[in-house]
Amino acid sequence: MNLFLQQLINGLNVGSIYALIAIGYTMVYGIIKLINFAHGEIMMFGAYFAFIAATSYNMPVWAIFLTSMIIMAILGVAIEFIAYRPLRNAPRLSALITAIGVSIFLQNLALLIFKADPKVMPKLFPEKIFYLGGIEISSTTLITVGLAIVFMILLDLYIRKTKQGRAMRAVSEDKDAAILMGINVNRTISLTFALGSALGALGGVLYSVAYIQVFPTMGVMPGLKAFIAAVLGGIGIVPGAMLGGFIIGMVETMTKAYISTTWADAIVFAILIIVLLFKPTGILGKNTREKV
């Protein structure tokens, strides 16, 4: 039983990181219907900036997170402005290829600047193990899960309660109607990219703290898993991405623990496929039949 609870904690840890990254995918998709393949690379660069902030400038922990998130928010907006905005009215597949291009570009840029060998992320949090009725929780796990949940609640409040948040929902609902209502669509899209990228960077920093390394291709697999999480929850729906992230994290850890480590990824994909076959728009997605 203890072993099971321990594995549950492990799953929660990965899941919260996937959820943070998945939010970025889902927000961008919700607003411009683009799978932002470069999101995994945003996460990777976020981790690199945190690494630099921690090793070269000896910043306090909160400043490391803040620097990385702000820089990535700016970079996210810049990417949208340079690479995606010119394609807003182009065929969607072209925009997708551009996103893939940006992803490959950022990956190789990192390879050129930082080189291929993994950098070791310094321990940002004091190391301590908490005992909770027979199960052990490390401080890193506790902080990772805690930070992820706090930021998710903040984001949810922001989207639901503030004016800009309402504008975001309006644009993702119907862009043309939003323009008619006097909403500045371009600014709203930029804001979405900023928020999504900042959360992606947060996910990246937490990921690199939890799994110690920072390297140019680190964004690929978590990016793909987070994307699956977003689709599983219903892409475009923020709470869906959070739910999807936790589900994927749990499924992955439990499969590794009790079924097979080598088939874990395959089982994650199989679950996704099965869910989509029965509920083609994801768990929280609304079913819409296309009309003539």
Binding site: L3, N10, N13, Y207, Q213, M218, T253, T261, T262, D265
Partner: peptide
Amino acid sequence: SYGTTDKDFSAQLTK
């Protein structure tokens, strides 16, 4: 065991 792209070894190490 673990896969080539795995970075999360907590499940295996717990066991």
